[in-house]
Amino acid sequence: MKMNIKIWRQAFQTTRGNFQTYILENMDDNMSFLEMLDVLNEKILHEGGDPVSFSHDCREGICGSCGVVINGRVHGPLQGVTTCQIYMRHLKHYKTLVIEPWRARAFPIIKDLVTDRQAFDRILQAGGYISINTGGIPDANATPIGRHIADQAFAAASCIGCGACVAACPNASANLFVSAKISHLAFLPQGQPEKNHRVESMLKAMDKEGFGNCSNTAACEFECPKGITLKNIAKLNREYFEALFRSSLEEHPTHPHHGKGDEVAHAAFHDTHEK
């Protein structure tokens, strides 16, 4: 198999990138897409060039590191797989492959096809956890959870944080990722104590990163390699509306001027909340 490979090349985050075209011959149908990039890089190295940078780790669809856009389709033209699970036989009807990095303001390009997805980490740090020590293995029947609730929590927990949802969304919105993280904990009893705080701070962190808003286009659901569904986004919305009315005052301090003349509390409030 012979193919033209058009790849986005960008030396640094701050420099301008452009497409470069390479030609690969004698490719095996059963080579994986990432192996094709390996072979291409060998060739570029032999010719004394700068190899193409791309992210990858497990190469079996579980870590979420890999991810590029191939001919306009996030994680390639198949549904329900990551980039590392794409094989050249899936692409052989193309004459030219156009390979682009995830494009989103919140995911700056580090080099070539490698994007900085730490925005996701910062969203998780804002609330994607429970603040208790896990301790020993709990008794299996100590915390009863309905079967279909457990299934939904598991399904949400299978998000690998690859960022394909953002890349596929016409608005570069991170709602599917955030909704997976929110639902996964909100369905389970362990997630209850911090649920209001969690959804408020994770959404705040999400907005701060500069992702777009959800328009319910469902492109994310279509492209997600782990089958995370829009139902999770509806759950996220419900959690948020609930938190609007139920989160504690510590999370939304009111202006402490209600008692008369409490200048100290007043000054402290302005110190901590209006900076």
């Binding site: 306009g72 494009r103 303001r105 492209e223």
Partner: peptide, 15 residues
């Protein structure tokens, strides 16, 4: 939220 658009756009397949 997406300053540089994709060169190839196939959004009709996904939404």
């Amino acid at each position: 939220a997406r300053k540089i658009p994709y060169a190839v756009i196939k959004s009709s397949e996904t939404s």
